[in-house]
Design a protein around this nucleic acid. Structure first.
Lengths: 247, 247
DNA sequence: CCTCGGCAGTTTGTCTGACCAAAGATTATA
DNA sequence: TATAATCTTTGGTCAGACAAACTGCCGAGG
């Protein structure tokens, strides 16, 4: 019977894990930095005293974590990756989708977290936005108004410009991850069109940030997300009913 | 010259990546669920039409992502992992430490994100806390007062009880990740003792949550974190001066 | 002299086949 | 029946080889 995994993890460290940890530690300690090239696999295998397949299992594990990357050829080899916000957000989103699937996080929790982060990002944006930020936001607003979109998540682009304007790259990362998670979960939902209301609210949010009114930005983003949540939730409920009726 | 990695990613998909994606998709689509056992490696290799080492590279990549886990023995095999908040937060924290090291996120951004999440968690906690939550918080407060700690991050336990009391597992996850990141960055800093002030503020926060006063909880957590940030920042600056003087 | 094309070398990618180690299942034994 | 030795299944590791990708050199031709 599978499932009693906690009982099995009895301290044993597999060889490839030992090596992966070793390399990982070299990076954490600064001994290896982004862009650095590792020795060839045969050389590394020799140094660690293991075979090449085993060494490669360690390398592939670190590649999966976006810590290393490899290329063929003489100028190739294995390199330490440059950390990248988008990749981190992407991985995080994948994990959150799984967590959602296991019912260890609910749709409501996701939306509350989204609201928490976006509201604050908007407040910060009102205080820190540059002229360039405003241009970007307005550009997205006008582009969206011209589009005839069917999907629900096109307006995410606008929300991302808010995050950018907050000039907090960690809040941006969290926000991106939550957006990707919600988009992934809702992939095949039919989301009703709330285009016009949504776009009106986008302009109101833009206005608040333009005026540098943080409190107003908070309120308007909150209101906008409440609307969006009710629309999203409605689609989820409809979907559930459909599935219940069919099955 | 290494570093021109964007030019190299020319669409080629390596075999082990193809297989990892295939298995990953089976999980995302629900075809494979947590606890499910995969066929033996030789069988899997045969099905995918690859050799066992190549297959194993794919499996090890997914193990590194905490998506799969494997055990030896007749009852062993490769299993789909149960997603786990703590593991996700841990991975996220590792990535954030790297991101910080690459100067793609600053200490200030980390603290603003921490404040954003904790303030909101406290507000939510004030509205949703149960008797059990209150007991847990008080227990930690009293335990901390009895401890003679040297490290700066002992009071993180209290902050975690706030997150728990918010009953939002995603905010808890984010909070944990940010805490672990800050703790990892500050590992060898000498943090001055702000024990008594900190503990007084903890009691005030507890009181606000006890009274179900969300606005008050917000203000008090904000104040507490501002104090903590100034202490932390002072330690970082002192550390920088030391390093500058030495080098 | 310069340019272009192919050859050689380096490095990762993949394969074959085998043996080792761990741990539950079985069976022989007291 | 209880227990210990053995079996069997499964992942863990190893060795060596060849293929593919790519750079850099070098020679042929202009």
């Amino acid at each position: 019977m599978p499932g009693n995994r906690q009982a099995r993890s009895s301290g044993k460290t597999k060889t490839f894990e030992r090596i992966a940890s070793s390399i990982r530690d070299s990076i954490l300690s600064g001994e290896l930095g982004p862009g650095d090239r590792l020795p060839p696999e045969t050389e590394l295998a020799r140094r660690f005293g293991v075979s090449r397949p085993t060494l490669r299992e360690a390398l592939k594990a670190l590649e999966a974590l976006d810590v290393l990357e490899s290329f063929t050829g003489p100028s190739g080899g294995t390199f330490v990756s440059t950390p990248d916000s988008f990749g981190i957000a992407d991985h995080l989103a994948s994990s959150l989708v799984l967590l959602f699937g296991a019912e260890k996080v609910s749709l409501e929790e996701l939306w509350v977290a989204r609201e928490t982060i976006e509201v604050r990002a908007g407040e910060l944006a009102a205080g820190r936005r540059t002229e360039r930020d405003l241009e970007a936001m307005l550009g997205v607003i006008e582009e969206d108004e011209g589009k005839d979109y069917a999907s629900y998540f096109p307006d995410i682009t606008f929300h991302r410009t808010i995050a950018e304007a907050s000039h907090n790259r960690l809040l941006s990362l969290f926000m991106l991850a939550v957006h990707m998670t919600l988009a992934s979960i809702a992939r095949d939902y039919v989301i009703p069109d709330a285009k016009e209301l949504s776009q009106r609210q986008h302009r109101l949010i833009y206005e608040a940030i333009l005026l540098k009114d943080g409190a107003l930005a908070r309120r308007r983003i909150q209101e906008h997300l409440e609307m969006a949540y009710s629309v999203y939730q409605g689609a989820v409920r409809r979907r559930s009913r459909e599935l219940a009726a069919r099955g």
